[in-house]
Nucleic acid binder design. Structure first.
Lengths: 332, 332
DNA sequence: CTGTTAGCGCGTTCAA
DNA sequence: TTGAACGCGCTAACAG
């Protein structure tokens, strides 16, 4: 920076102001400084800047998996908002494990994010501790937690499945099964399964049947295997709700191979409104949870919360419930 | 850190060594220090650490899109290796745009990554400049560039399609079209299209037909629309190679709706070996490019290159060509 | 194995 | 609108 300053004939402090675009610098000097920097190949050092200003200008976002279009749409929404406010995002992928999450949080915090966005409302005790001590805004997204750490934007997974079940009942199905939703670390899956079980009771169905598919990520393969087990275990089944569109697709394709007509022999519904669901033949009935909008909401809250902290006027905890829609297609 | 040191009855420097796990600290003191840190909720500040040590311990990885299983598998491979060496990764998504890439690079460099991995071999001049001046290892992945900036791991997109074409010819197809591959910023698509056009000549086919699908990302929707245009433009077509599995799937599903049997009326091949291709009914003939292995290779090179720089024994540029395989399935 | 000293490259703060 | 002084929190380097 000193070199640039010398070359432009100003003090280093003026270079700092010009290059960050804050504070007042006469336009003509600014230009000279920017040119000098370019010629020297000078690039600001944010480690030093952050240390001095106590601002890192980035937010951590933790999602279970990089390869899931629901999460990636959410991330798009978050990024859209935060980038527009000049913030950067540092991603972490937890692989659906709370232990990984804890580890990633502790690693992230060393870089002093100004906020952190988590997927899901269940975390290890140590993770909660770390977050508390960090004194930065936390936004939990997707699953609305019982007791949010701070802010939250999401929906009730159980409710989405209950709505789907009601729809299937209305369409005339009576023997409805559920594919997916394990005991283990799969909180979203468990919630959806819970919704299924509640709906079976509420709607007064005679029988229920859950085919667990193991820990996430649940793939097309799981749907293929699951549907075979299902038909064997409960031949009278006339509809099945899957924990996501991926196993729903896998199940439907396997049905085609087996000659089980969808939806005549068996109706199949998914969750998430993935691209494959609208193009699949038959197209797949599913639940859209407005991922992008959810992400934008989370981004807005985070931006405001950070602004609040910087100005020493912290905002109060925000809890937003986002809407979901059952989308009826050919598979039911 | 001073507080932790006081609490543990040591000097701050010893706390630093204990918490980073480098250098020698007597086990008993180390434990005391770690406990003290935990009790005080102390977390290392890497901004300060990086400033002092001139090591940031992270690598930037730029990919076109978060939501593409090919790229995400590659990223998995990279992460596997780099995490095992204790490095972190900072992702950037370019949205298939060189201008975005340039901007992201310049933002990233302010945080002083110790290396940078780019997808594709074509960049803006300014981007190349920035990278040169940064004096850090650069690994270009996926497309093998004509003139690599530094290291490269990838394959020739054109070659993969040529191999697919040869396979289709062997299977008896003669009127083979290509779906996708635009003029614009889509370098990978253009290369694949080039491979198609070369193969048409080399293999002595009578006619060629390219249906461009616009700029990436190319989705299932593009395949659906493209196949309709194709059949209209060239009714005699008996096979079509798609720029990726996504449009291939979209095309096949549309064929089912239209009553065009795949592969009897029309054979369809894709690229990338996405999950949907093996579960689709019919399953889709495609090209597997070993994304995860490619990523691991890139990670290994990066790790060695960084090690080299730290030890002042820089390694020489590495260029690795990774293998690809044509996977024949039901759609041809 | 541990401690001391010095300084990494900026931005805050205040004065001009 | 610009500049000077200072210190952010840590680690390299060296001494013991």
């Amino acid at each position: 920076m000193t070199d640039v300053a010398r070359k432009a004939g100003v003090a280093p402090m003026t270079v700092s102001r010009a290059l960050r675009g804050d504070g007042y610098v006469v336009e003509e000097k600014k230009e000279r400084i920017i040119n000098a920097a370019k010629e020297l190949g000078y690039v600001l050092n944010m480690s030093a800047g952050s240390l001095s200003s106590n601002k890192t200008n980035f937010v951590s976002v933790l999602i279970p998996s990089i390869n899931n279009s629901n999460f990636s749409e959410t991330v798009h929404g978050i990024a859209e908002v935060l980038h527009s406010k000049g913030m950067q995002i540092l991603f972490g992928y937890t692989d659906y494990s709370m232990e990984n999450e804890e580890h990633i949080i502790s690693t992230m915090l060393k870089r002093r994010p100004e906020g952190i966005i988590l997927t899901g409302g269940v975390h290890t005790d140590q993770a909660r501790n770390l977050l508390k001590n960090a004194h930065i805004p936390v936004v939990e997204i997707w699953d609305l937690p019982e007791k949010p750490i701070n802010h939250a934007v999401g929906f009730l997974n159980s409710r989405t499945i209950e709505d789907m079940m009601a729809r299937l009942l209305f369409l005339g199905y009576r023997n409805i099964a559920f594919l997916g939703g394990d005991e283990g670390g799969d909180n979203r899956g468990r919630e959806r399964r819970l919704g299924y079980e509640r709906a079976v009771k509420t709607l007064g169905l005679d029988k229920s049947c859950v085919i667990p598919l193991g820990p996430p990520p649940i793939t097309m393969m799981h749907g293929k295997e699951g549907i075979i087990r299902l038909i064997k275990e409960w031949p009278e089944v006339d509809a099945v709700v899957c924990v996501s569109d991926l196993p729903a697709f896998g199940a439907i394709m396997e049905c085609q191979r087996q000659g089980w007509k969808v939806p005549e022999r068996l109706a199949v519904a998914g969750f998430g409104d993935f691209e494959v669901s609208s193009f699949s033949c038959p197209s797949i009935t599913t639940i859209n949870v407005g991922c992008a909008e959810l992400g934008r909401n989370a981004g807005e809250i985070m931006a405001k919360a950070i602004e609040g902290i910087r100005c020493k006027t912290p905002i109060s905890p925000q809890i937003i419930t986002t809407p979901h829609t059952v989308i009826e297609r050919e598979s039911t």
